[in-house]
């Protein structure tokens, strides 16, 4: 587990990350993942997010693990993203790894 480093490539995502444009977001992240070992997702704090995006990020993490890469968040989840995680049942009984990924919480 690690946090984004200054040299890690960030991928700035659009302000809408919902089912309406989730196909485009998938292609965007997939393309970036294929070109980079580390993918840092830069999500606007004001971004509009729904469950499809959280599922997409989960899938992206699995994809990265397959090729020994990694996906990180540029900053801990806030705003809509935090709300979706909470309402979607991702924060109850969170594993340390998940807590580190989504909330940047240290695991000790």
């Amino acid at each position: 587990m690690s946090s984004p480093l200054p040299g890690d490539a960030p991928l700035t995502l659009p302000a809408t990350l919902t089912i309406k444009n989730i196909l485009a977001v998938q292609e965007l992240i997939l393309d970036f993942l294929n070109k980079n070992t580390t993918t840092v997702l830069d999500i606007d704090e004001e971004a509009q997010i729904d469950l499809s995006f959280v599922q997409l990020v989960t899938a992206a993490r699995k994809q990265a693990e397959m090729k020994a890469g990694r996906v990180l968040l540029a900053r801990p989840a806030t705003g809509d993203l935090y709300d979706v995680l909470k309402r979607g049942g991702f924060l109850d009984d969170m594993t340390p790894e998940a807590a580190h990924f989504w909330l940047h919480q240290e695991t000790n």
């Binding site: 089912i19 196909l23 977001v25 997939l30 599922q55 997409l56 992206a60 994809q63």
Partner: peptide, 10 residues
């Protein structure tokens, strides 16, 4: 949830 490449995101 499958890997991103095979995910139907909708």
């Amino acid at each position: 949830v499958p890997e991103l490449a095979t995910l139907d995101p909708r």
